[in-house]
């Protein structure tokens, strides 16, 4: 039909657009109406909390190790509630990529965060590395030798091992934290760390606070300091997530579908 009458197709197209002119629109007015994401959406990194309001993350660093572009950078209080293990250099993403590329290429990486962890005499580490051929497969002997030299594993030494052997810091840290006989602090510091740990509220305080929040009942014990302590405990960060929700905000089940907590 439209082949026979010239311009009929054009006219029908015009009518179609005119009809669409009056139809409901597809635009989502973004800041006012945030689009409803699906529960499975995994567009952003986020640390999750369990039903007691504590972080599910065990800081095992396997995610940082597996991340192909090394965008995950971690830190926080370790699972034994002892000391703070934030090593990530406070640098931009671009610099981190740069460092990563350098490290992969095998060249030494200039690291501005060295001073932060206190420079040490690296000769024993060098010796240990040279003895084991700078091979990350011999990580455990290297770490043991290092510990023998310093009495503990200084961060600068681990970074140096990471730089020279090409193993990721996350991997070395994971290895070192797995073995009980390797430690990250001087002998005397362990007592200090224990004292710090003792000054933190025991886990039961979280439970009682949680119970108070959920059941509405009075907290059982230790009412003096839980909120601040909770904040301190939940300070782990994943780079890429804008803000990690503090554990003092416990996700109730009132939202129904059991979605993971989501910022905003």
């Amino acid at each position: 039909m439209s082949q026979l009458v010239p311009g009929l197709g054009l006219a029908r197209g015009m009518l179609l657009t005119l009809r669409r002119f009056f139809e409901p629109k597809a635009t989502i007015r973004y800041p006012e109406e945030p689009p409803e994401g699906s529960p499975k959406f995994r567009g952003r990194l986020q640390l999750l909390y369990d039903e007691y309001g504590t972080l599910k993350c065990e800081t095992c660093f396997q995610c940082a190790q597996a991340c192909p572009i090394e965008c995950i950078d971690m830190g926080g209080i370790d699972t034994k509630n002892r000391y703070h293990i934030h090593w990530g250099p406070p640098e931009t993403y671009g610099e981190r990529r740069d460092e990563s590329a350098l490290r992969r290429s095998g060249r030494p990486v200039p690291d501005p965060a060295y001073e932060h962890f206190g420079p040490i005499d690296l000769a024993p580490v060098e010796a240990a590395l040279a003895e084991y051929d700078y091979d990350p497969k011999n990580l455990l002997p290297i770490l043991e030798a290092t510990q023998q030299a310093y009495g503990y594993l200084p961060v600068a030494a681990i970074k140096h091992i990471s730089n020279m052997s090409g193993a990721w810091y996350a991997m070395i840290y994971g290895t070192a934290s797995y073995y009980g006989h390797l430690r990250f602090e001087k002998k005397g510091d362990r007592e200090q760390a224990a004292a710090v740990a003792a000054s933190r509220p025991p886990e039961s305080s979280y439970r009682s606070a949680l119970q108070a929040a959920l059941m509405g009942g009075a907290p059982v014990e230790d009412t003096t300091q839980p909120p601040a302590a909770n904040k301190a405990r939940g300070s782990s960060k994943v780079r890429g997530s804008s803000k990690v929700r503090g554990s003092s905000k416990v996700r109730g089940s009132s939202k129904g579908r059991g979605r993971p907590p989501r910022a905003n």
Binding site: S2, P6, G7, L8, G9, L10, R12, G13, L16, T17
Partner: peptide, 14 residues
Amino acid sequence: DANVRLLNENEIFV
């Protein structure tokens, strides 16, 4: 079908 009708029948396009 509604979407493609705009172009399929359009003499200029064809």
